[in-house]
Design a protein around this nucleic acid. Structure first.
Lengths: 210, 210
DNA sequence: GCCAGAGTTAAACAACTGTTTTAAATGATG
DNA sequence: CATCATTTAAAACAGTTGTTTAACTCTGGC
């Protein structure tokens, strides 16, 4: 088994298990036995469990932010003014499209993102902010430009409202979808849910102060 | 030290520590030493750590849902038609008011609620649904009545969007507020944040399908 | 005054945690 | 082919976890 093979098998297993159970609830022994590698391989290749967690996020977030940056470049190059709906569509299309192209599961991605915010791993929050903060600020800046009437503080609170609605809903997507299917017999795909989310989140961002 | 004293000291300590660190990350030894009681007291009084977690939520949720039910009764008795903004205001006012009256911290309450959704404690989700599902369905039903033009499936997705925005934002309230204070020098109280949340969430619920 | 039962205490339990060690095996390079 | 760093393997490490035990103290009712 080559080195890269061992490394990516560990990442594959850790990604799935972390998304299913959380970080503390997933032991290195569970990860390595699922991956079919030796227990010591984690500490050898990654150094520690913390660094493994960060590596899992890096493999997720780098293609995502790269694709988002190119998408934003494309939109800006087109010369058309940026609208709120378009920016959110870009965000969700990139999350759905570019990740699944690379064989990454977008729901797992959202579950992991939700974990990063709610589990108490200070190192992880710091890692994400330092590595991906710039992309985040760029997107937020463009969104703010598309909302000229909204004062900055109100805008930022609404940005968090939007993030909360997105991360919370998509990270529990399976559970919510199952409830709705049982109660209404209506299936909704992830795609359809995002199509509901775009106008809803846009309305929330744009609403006139009452 | 009387029995009720020991029980509530354990609940007090567990409530704070769970909200700060999560369930798995908080050991019974940390709880009991913070509470100043013996380690075995948890298993003696509550049976297990799981049941202690449920007891913490019960102490939070029962006064909250009771107060929400009375508030809804009052609104209905007033005879005025129920509007979306009014229902959300009721929800938030009860969360802010009735809890702090009893000396409970509303932010801690929200952090715990967020944990209940994102940590992987199947027993906790089941406990909350079975104990408080009826209050939840009553509130959701009234909200749906105030939104006659929205089809049921869309309504339920938007309800989850709203829950996500609320729980995510308020459970990270301290962190978000600190960032905004640093970047804009503008303080916002929890009260003010809820006043921003009411129109934003209402707009999200009411938006016409595009 | 005494005694049953509730409450508390310290100690020990077995299981599990992340990490390290030591030795063997592997694989590329000269 | 021999060499040496890289990689794997199994075992042991020290620490923590939730839970249980058994002896102890205290209190309220007769």
């Amino acid at each position: 088994m080559s080195q890269t093979d061992t490394v990516s098998r560990i990442l594959d297993a850790a990604e799935v298990l972390f998304a299913e159970r959380g970080f503390t609830e997933t032991s290195l022994r569970t990860i390595t036995s699922t991956a079919g590698v030796n227990l010591a391989a984690v500490n050898y290749h990654f150094g520690s469990k913390k660094e493994l967690i960060q590596a899992v996020f890096e493999r997720f977030l780098t293609p995502f932010t790269d694709a988002l940056e190119s998408e934003l470049d494309r939109r800006i190059a087109s010369g058309q003014p940026l609208r709120v709906e378009g920016l959110l569509e870009s965000l969700y299309r990139v999350g759905l499209g570019s990740l699944s192209e690379r064989g990454l599961d977008p729901q797992r991605f959202m579950r992991l993102l939700g974990l990063a915010y709610t589990q108490f791993q200070g190192h992880l929050r710091r890692f994400i902010v330092s590595r991906y903060g710039e992309s985040y600020r760029r997107f937020a800046g463009l969104l703010a430009e598309a909302l000229p009437g909204v004062d900055p503080v109100t805008f930022y609170w609404r940005l968090y409202f939007m993030l909360g609605a997105t991360i919370f809903t998509l990270s529990s997507y399976d559970a919510i979808e199952a409830i709705l299917r049982e109660d209404f017999g209506a299936q909704s795909s992830l795609q359809e849910t995002l199509e509901r989310l775009v106008p809803a989140a846009s309305a929330m961002l744009k609403v006139e102060a009452s």
